[in-house]
C-alpha cells in the first residue's frame, strides 16, 4: 500500500476511534464554534463602533478572517500526532514508530484527524461565505485557483509550525509555550491585513514566519485591491510558495531530529 493510501487508511481508523466518544465530539465541536464565534464577534464590535479601519471594511477583514481560519482549522485538525509528540518522546513510545517499516513523519501525521475542529471550520466557512457575497467576488476559474493555492500555502505554513514545534521535543523536554505564541498569534495576526501593524511586525510576518505571504498578498490579489504598502498584485500569486518552502524546511528539520534521537536515544 502506498504511503498516501496508508495515510488515509490510518486517518480513517482514527475517525472510527473517535466515533466511540460521540458526546465528547459534539461538545468539543460546539465549544470550538463558540470560541471562534466570539473572536469574530469582537471584530464585528470594533466595526460597529468605528465603521472602517484605515480604509478596510468589515467584509474585507471578514474575508481575511475566514480564509486564515479555514486553513488553520484544517491544519490543526491534522495536527494531533505532532501536537502530542513531546509526550511520545518522553514516554519512549516513539520507539514503536521506529520499529515499523514506514516513514516516521507519515506515521505521526496519520495518528489522528481531530473531527471536532469541524466547529471552527464551519464557523469560518460561514464568515468566508458572507464576506465573499458582500464583496461580490468573481468566482472565476483563476480566482478559485488562486484561492485554493492560498489556502494550501496557509495550511502548509501552519502545519510546518506544528512540525517544528514537535521537532523541538527531540532536543528539549520542556514544552515550549513560546512556539504556541507564534502559531496562535499568527492566526490572530492574519485575521487583519498586516497594513494595520507596525513595520517590525509586518516584516516579521513577511520574512520571519511568512504568514503575510500566504495570507495578505494573495488576498489582495483575490480582492483586486492595490496594496497600500506598495507591493504589486502578482506577488500574491507567487508568495504562497513560501508556505510550501517552510513546510519543506520543517520536514528537513524533523529528519534531523529523528537522526539526533536515534544517535542519542534521549
Amino acid at each position: 500500500m502506498s504511503g498516501f493510501r496508508l495515510y488515509w487508511r490510518l486517518i480513517g481508523a482514527s475517525i472510527r476511534a473517535q466515533m466511540q466518544y460521540r458526546a465528547s465530539f459534539w461538545m468539543h465541536s460546539v465549544a470550538h464554534l463558540v470560541d471562534t464565534g466570539l473572536e469574530f464577534l469582537a471584530i464585528w464590535a470594533l466595526f460597529a463602533r468605528f465603521r472602517q479601519v484605515l480604509g478596510w471594511t468589515l467584509p474585507e477583514v471578514a474575508f481575511f478572517y475566514g480564509t486564515i481560519n479555514i486553513a488553520f482549522s484544517i491544519a490543526d485538525a491534522f495536527n494531533r500526532g505532532f501536537d502530542l509528540f513531546g509526550q511520545k518522546v518522553r514516554s519512549g513510545d516513539f520507539d514503536l514508530i521506529l520499529i515499523r517499516p514506514r516513514s516516521t513523519a507519515l506515521q505521526i501525521a496519520a495518528q489522528e484527524l481531530r473531527l471536532m475542529r469541524v466547529g471552527r471550520l464551519s464557523q469560518s466557512c460561514v464568515v468566508f461565505g458572507w464576506a465573499s457575497w458582500k464583496l461580490n467576488v468573481l468566482w472565476s476559474p483563476e480566482w478559485c485557483l488562486l484561492l485554493l493555492w492560498t489556502l494550501l500555502g496557509t495550511v502548509a505554513l501552519f502545519y510546518a509550525l506544528f512540525v517544528l514545534q514537535a521537532t523541538l521535543a527531540f532536543w528539549t523536554t520542556e514544552t515550549l509555550e513560546v512556539v504556541n505564541a507564534v502559531t496562535y498569534g499568527g492566526v490572530e495576526a492574519g485575521q487583519y491585513p498586516i497594513a494595520l501593524y507596525r513595520p517590525w511586525l509586518r516584516e516579521f510576518l513577511t520574512y520571519g514566519v511568512p504568514i503575510a505571504c500566504v495570507n495578505y498578498y494573495p488576498i489582495l490579489a483575490l480582492l483586486g485591491k492595490p496594496d497600500p504598502l506598495g507591493a504589486p498584485l502578482w506577488v500574491g500569486w507567487l508568495s504562497p510558495l513560501a508556505g510550501m518552502a517552510f513546510l519543506g524546511v520543517a520536514l528537513f528539520a524533523w529528519e534531523l531530529g529523528v537522526r539526533h534521537y536515534r544517535s542519542t536515544g534521549s
Binding site: L46, R49, F50, R51, Q52, V53, L54, G55, E177, V178, N180, A181, G185, E188, A189, Y192, L196, Y197, R198, L201
Partner: peptide
C-alpha cells in the same frame, strides 16, 4: 506569549482609533 498578544491587540486598536 502574553506580551505578543497584547501588542497585537494594541496595534489593531491603534489602527481603528486612527480611522
Amino acid at each position: 506569549t502574553q506580551a505578543f498578544w497584547g501588542l497585537l491587540r494594541v496595534m489593531v486598536l491603534e489602527a481603528f482609533y486612527r480611522s
